[in-house]
Design a protein around this nucleic acid. Structure first.
Lengths: 155, 155
DNA sequence: TATATCATTTACGTAAACGTAAGTGGGTGC
DNA sequence: GCACCCACTTACGTTTACGTAAATGATATA
């Protein structure tokens, strides 16, 4: 009995561990973390927030291909600036496997809004860059001028 | 004795209150907040953090022109993405009124670093925008195609 | 059997920049 | 003399996305 007790009679083709091929249908949390460059904490956190729901073998989490796809979506969502709450909403729409019609439209809507927010962020950023550059120009002038100048470096 | 007791014998040319001209040498926190569009809480918070140090008339804060200049700098710093801690460092450099030499250089250094961070942020943002746009394209395709398509909307 | 590795849960901690409530004081107008 | 407004202080609350113990369980290897 060195090869596990096979607790629930489930699919237990759990041969070698460090196979780098993601051909295994299920991976454990460690692999998952490595493959997607997130921490274990993050994966558990996402689960806690209802974003992931891997199956369990006893207490051990097993992530399926669907879970991996979901994680990819989550990470994409995060990358493009959605909060986890929003990501969850979007994923909850996607998931009911009936992603047929207005669900996609809703995703588009949200995406457009987010796109707007991103563009605005970019303009704010550009403004900041401009102002910082301008300020640097002023400081440089103070440096090259004779040190006989007064304050007046604000605005 | 309807015109105040003039508590400390200080300059008390405190004539009319709602003068919209910032010609008064000292303003109180309410004016300050209005003029720079910040909350009272913010001003007190900045003071608590050592970023501002208005003088007091009794317990009432009075902000001088220098204080206003400092606030402008603070807000500029915040706008270009410095943390309050960083802003404080920069201002503490500026202020010793001996802003002669390497202080300005240091300001420039920090500013260049920050500029780099801002540019990087922008590139991240641009990437996000691109990815979101790309994703939207895919979703739109799923919408225009006959609804006979399968999953595979990730990545 | 002892050890090492990977996993689990619970739960408090962190960072930034204030928001917000609660209770109080000072000065002014009527 | 009371109502108001503006201001003050103290101090806990908020938000997001995890980090970081701490204590324990399960599995594999030597």
């Amino acid at each position: 009995m060195t090869t596990t007790k096979n607790p629930a009679g489930e699919a237990a083709a759990n041969t070698n561990r460090s196979s780098s091929e993601p051909a295994n249908d299920f991976v454990r949390i460690g692999e998952m973390a490595k493959n997607y460059d997130v921490t274990l904490r993050t994966l558990r956190f996402y689960e806690d927030k209802g974003l992931l729901a891997p199956k369990r073998e006893g207490s051990t989490r097993l992530y399926s291909r669907r879970d991996r796809t979901r994680l990819k979506l989550i990470l994409l969502g995060r990358k493009v600036g959605f909060s986890l709450r929003e990501v969850k909403q979007l994923i909850d729409l996607y998931d009911p496997s009936g992603s047929n019609a207005k669900q996609l439209r809703l995703v588009l809507e949200k995406s457009e809004k987010q796109l707007g927010r991103l563009r605005k962020q970019r303009s704010v950023l550009d403004e900041a860059i401009d102002e910082l550059s301008a300020h640097m120009v002023r400081v440089r002038q103070l440096l090259t001028e004779k040190p006989a100048s007064r304050s007046a470096a604000a605005s």
